[in-house]
């Protein structure tokens, strides 16, 4: 029997959690690369965030989603969706577990951090975002 598995059921659209089990996002798309030597495509990264998802879905709704998500991001990387390199992906039983904490992935979950920083943390009783 072959030990290959379905991309659809084990990777695409699955929940991503970081090394500390914090939800990070979902696998909104998977970036493949065709090796120059002609071998089969390899998974180089998983894409996460509404930008990747919007580009994947297409149509008016998808385009809108991608545009809004891109607008909400800052920095020079905003044209490209958020990517997590395949090297950071560990176990993937029910959830896709990363081998690194969210803190090591500065582009991921930007809105979450922005809201924590600008809106929620200032209020009494919110708890600490970074513990």
């Amino acid at each position: 029997m072959n030990d290959h598995e379905s991309l659809r059921f084990t990777l695409l659209d699955q929940q991503l959690v970081d090394a500390e089990d914090r939800p990070v996002g979902r696998v909104d798309d998977v970036l493949l690369d065709l090796p120059a030597d002609g071998g089969p495509p390899v998974v180089v990264a998983v894409l996460t965030g509404a930008q990747a998802l919007g580009e994947r879905m297409g149509g008016p709704a998808g385009k809108l989603m991608a545009a809004v998500a891109s607008r909400l991001r800052s920095g020079e990387h905003r044209a490209e969706p958020v990517a997590i390199p395949a090297s950071a992906i560990g176990d993937h039983a029910d959830l896709v577990q990363l081998t690194v904490p969210l803190g090591d992935l500065p582009h991921v979950a930007g809105l979450e951090r922005w809201l924590a920083h600008h809106l929620v943390e200032g209020l009494p009783g919110a708890g600490d975002a970074r513990d």
């Binding site: 939800p23 990070v24 996002g25 998802l53 929620v120 209020l123 009783g125 919110a126 708890g127 975002a129």
Partner: peptide, 13 residues
């Protein structure tokens, strides 16, 4: 979207 959620989490998480 795969965000963190939860009433058991403090709001900032």
């Amino acid at each position: 979207f795969g965000w963190a959620y939860g009433e058991v989490q403090p709001p900032a998480r």
